[in-house]
Design a protein around this nucleic acid. Structure first.
Lengths: 201, 201, 201, 201
DNA sequence: AATGAATGAGGATTCATTCAT
DNA sequence: AATGAATGAATCCTCATTCAT
């Protein structure tokens, strides 16, 4: 197995543990090795330290997710279709229990201080990821302006906040209002979409 | 010093470390003891374990904050005044670098899984706190309905989301848009207030 | 037990292992702890690392030996008596199997590079020890000049070498010529003494 | 490359690392392999273990040195010329920073216990080497008797010690008295030569 | 014969917790 | 009640050695 592929293989093992274990600092190198069916020492052939491995694994995951979002955007689809697709993507992450992604995405808002050692290792790629993220958001915004959903392109802060709010809508619903108190899948997506529209008009 | 007072004294030490240290799992019992000017062993006279101490300290902090919010609410003030005051309170926390509070508040949205061991210990009091929080939010909402800012009392999810979004507005601005790209203090509070109004109309 | 006393207690344990084990790098912290009847962790209450402990232990041993030599020197005894006493001291070390001391003493001649990491840690005190050692040697030399055993005080190098040679005489004999090939205890001391006299005349 | 030649090639790599690294126990098999431009696994095609490799490398080096000494001895040269040549050889080793050789030579005096594991592996060849060494020394001694520099052939211990002392003279000077405090190259060789003569008369 | 990826035994170090004073 | 010395379980990481290619 080529090196890069092997690393990705180890990332997957780490990520599944990250999702299971609910406390990054409790993850053991040995657990990762076992999950990946390799020897403990082998991990160190590919990574300098446990923290580096975890930082890289999270970066890998985030990159993949953003790529997925970017690829799913299609100019020939309407703005609303594209926006809805993005929200669906968030929802599917939440349902798949890939809570970690959202933990780290939300970290970029307020909790990013929680794992400084790992954050420090991620910093460079993290900034790049944030840029990708912004680029993608902007593409969506531009589309919405183009179609006249939003009259005039608002300042950066305003559209960034509008999208974040949209996503928060989906997240809160999924986390706290499932079942009888909540809305249907369709309704919540609609509500999140409207959030964007309302906030920018 | 009576027991309860001593515990609070230790909470303060723990909290200041939590704010400084940027990684909960890196905080040592000895650091807390030193900060509080007591012996390491003394900590165990008051708490069963480090994790319990931290869980209690965070609960203590959150309780205090919510109390502060509740106390600052005054029926004789207008809805907008009250709402603005709450947002100011959030802002002052962000400025005071009490990032941890916000980390934990935002944890209640999406990141709460990150410290399961602590969360488990906090669970009971955390649920209680969430209820207090909701009660306070609802009081605000009711006021807004009473004053006609919002036509009709919307469903729980809708107003909870509207307030969360308002707060998110302040948080994002503080974290990413300070300085020349951002709005003035006054403007951002106004924007956050409008978010509430827009989303519920 | 006061801290210093406890440290010395641990030194003794380490030194007995150093003498037994014949390879510094093979000594485990656990072995030292066991020998001293204390917990592994306790060692780290007194020392920052294994290497520091070993460096300090060796320094302690050398210091003690040099002190012993210095104390055994008495101005009212003749030069020859004093010199012989020093040689006896060397011999008794060799017989007690405290080979390590001699290993380290001889390290100062030619092998000092062998344990750089430990040497680095010892450096400061090692230099001090060498000075003590020189001071003691010089006292002896002065005595020999005073008594006319040596006509005129020779240059530093010459007397340092003469004493080293004397000691080498005893060491070589003890190590390789014991038994029927060798000389009696008395004879070898005499020979070593004569070495000093011959080399400085 | 024939097996024996390849082994010697690996010896050279190991020896250069031994000279560089200052701590035998810190040398890694991988370092040796890299230095020799071969694969780590290849080392194990030629040696059973790292320690064996090191033991053999040192033996190889010592053998070569003794051979060098023996070859440089020429019956047609005077005793003093031959003796001086040997001392020069020691000096050149010291200058070339081949301290390891001297470390191991001095180990044969007092420090040999320091690396028992390696010493054990070397034992057989080491004894053989010591015999070669003795043979060479004796040849020199005989020459000195033959020329009348020494009246009568002294007992083994006496001449062995006299030569060792001579060498110690050069070593101490090189290690501690270089520069302004010390003697010139020529002077120190003369002094070392005189040591031999004095001690045996 | 040569390789280097994989391994896991081994050991240093940390730190929450205990307990004798 | 308060302490901090003592503890050892827990875990990261290293590196000699193996073995399939």
């Amino acid at each position: 197995m080529p090196t890069e592929e092997k690393k990705e293989f180890i990332y997957e093992a780490a990520l599944s543990l990250i999702d299971e274990s609910d406390d990054l600092s409790k993850i053991k190198v040995m657990d990762i090795a076992q999950k990946a069916n390799i020897g403990k020492g082998t991990v160190y052939e590919y990574f300098n330290s446990k923290e580096q491995l975890i930082a890289e694994a999270i970066t890998y995951m985030l990159k993949r997710w953003i790529n997925h979002l970017e690829e799913s955007f299609a100019d020939e689809r309407s703005f609303k279709e594209n926006y809805t697709l993005m929200l669906e993507s968030v929802l599917s992450l939440l349902e798949k229990k890939h809570r970690t992604i959202l933990g780290f995405i939300s970290m970029s808002e307020s909790g990013s201080h929680l794992y400084k050692s790992i954050n420090t290792l991620m910093q460079e790629s993290f900034e790049e990821l944030q840029k990708s993220n912004l680029r993608f958001y902007e593409k969506i915004v531009d589309k919405s302006v183009e179609e006249g959903v939003v009259k005039e392109k608002p300042p950066l802060f305003d559209w960034y906040f509008a999208i974040s709010s949209s996503i928060l809508c989906v997240i809160i619903h999924e986390k706290h209002f499932e079942g009888d108190v909540g809305y249907s899948h369709k309704q919540i997506i609609e509500k999140a979409y409207n959030t964007y529209v309302k906030l920018l008009s």
